[in-house]
């Protein structure tokens, strides 16, 4: 089974590596933006996986860090476009701030949230992210409810041009690989052992002498920082920044991706993000097709009900595929309840 798993993951990562080449060859540039979105959400889901999968901290507010990262780009663009501050488009600065600001926000939010447990933790992380959501709605200057359309993207000078979809794609792909490598080192380090141990049995960890709170907090901050990178990419991919990306529904989507792919495994969230967006994209078409095959009438609207299939499908995976898609690949088919 291990062979199948490694093979499958390698295949997915290789396939992702050639998406722009294939898309341009068959002249379907749409695929590049769809798959860029997958990579971006794979980074965001991986960041959530650090706290959720490895640390057992169910953050229901990770959309906030995604949003903060994208607003770094949006606010930089605003001042470049309106105040002639050209330096505010500097891509390196965007990337750095999209790591630092969401990271600090996560440290602050985590410092309070991590004093609670269970449902309270979930609700507090949710409350903080909704606070940020309404804060940005109130920021009329930066578009408020309507968001900001970006005429200029993050500027990396002669190094790369993000207006070129393929270059943006490979930046996202490179950053995903980097994030996965960093996470791999992190979760297997001494630090990682403490965070994972605290998920398994925090009381025991304190008894052997670990001040677990500070380790969990640092993990939470790192997770926010990585999620901010995804936000930076998302703004440049959609060429638009808005509060809707910070809405709690997106925090829920990220949790679904992690659970769907496999919590607490390195590649699980990547598989989850790819699977989630594939289903979102093709399930409606599939349902329409099935409707035609079984000879139903007014099949045009069948696709609109894709979530009626998507929801139960997720429930089945959670119930019966221990460890999500990654668990299935390892042959861990068994009931979770």
């Amino acid at each position: 089974m291990q062979m199948i798993r490694v093979g499958f993951i390698a295949l997915v990562m290789l396939a992702l590596a050639v998406v722009p080449v294939v898309a341009n060859a068959i002249d379907e540039p749409f695929y590049v933006s769809l798959f860029t979105r997958m990579l971006v959400l794979a980074i965001a889901a991986s960041s959530l996986n650090l706290v959720l999968g490895y640390g057992g901290m169910v953050s229901f507010g990770h959309a906030a860090y995604l949003g903060l990262g994208s607003y770094v780009v949006g606010i930089g663009f605003y001042h470049a476009a309106n105040d002639g501050m050209d330096w505010a488009l500097n891509g390196w600065m965007h990337l750095a701030l999209a790591i630092i600001i969401p990271g600090l926000a996560a440290l602050l939010i985590g410092a309070i949230s991590l004093r609670t447990r269970g449902v309270y933790f979930i609700m507090i992380t949710l409350a903080f992210s909704q606070m940020l959501y309404y804060f940005f709605i109130g920021l009329e200057r930066y578009g408020g409810d309507d968001g900001l359309s970006l005429w200029y993207l993050s500027d990396f000078g002669s190094v790369m041009d993000l207006n070129d979809d393929s270059q943006l794609y490979y930046l996202a792909y490179g950053l995903l690989l980097l994030v996965l490598f960093i996470l791999y080192r992190l979760v297997n380090s001494r630090f990682g052992m403490v965070v994972r141990g605290a998920k398994s049995n925090e009381r025991r960890l304190m008894a052997v002498g670990f001040p677990t709170y500070r380790y969990r907090l640092v993990a939470f901050g790192i997770s926010g920082a990585i999620c901010g990178v995804a936000g930076f990419l998302m703004a440049n991919q959609s060429e638009f920044v808005s509060t809707s990306e910070m809405h709690w529904v997106h925090s829920g989507d990220l949790i679904v991706m992690v659970v769907l792919g496999g919590m607490g495994t390195l590649f699980g969230p990547v598989l989850g993000a790819v699977g989630f967006l594939m289903l979102e994209q093709y399930l409606p078409e599939l349902m329409e097709g099935v409707c035609h095959i079984i000879g139903g009438s007014s099949c045009g609207i069948a696709g609109e009900y894709w979530k009626m299939v998507f929801g139960p499908l997720l429930i089945l995976i959670v119930l019966f595929a221990r460890g999500g898609i990654d668990g299935l690949l390892q042959g861990k088919v068994g009931r979770n309840v």
């Binding site: 992190l186 380090s189 001494r190 380790y215």
Partner: peptide, 12 residues
């Protein structure tokens, strides 16, 4: 302290 982020613990 365990703020050691890089080296593998399992083979230490």
């Amino acid at each position: 302290h365990s703020f050691r982020f890089w080296r593998k613990a399992a083979t230490d």
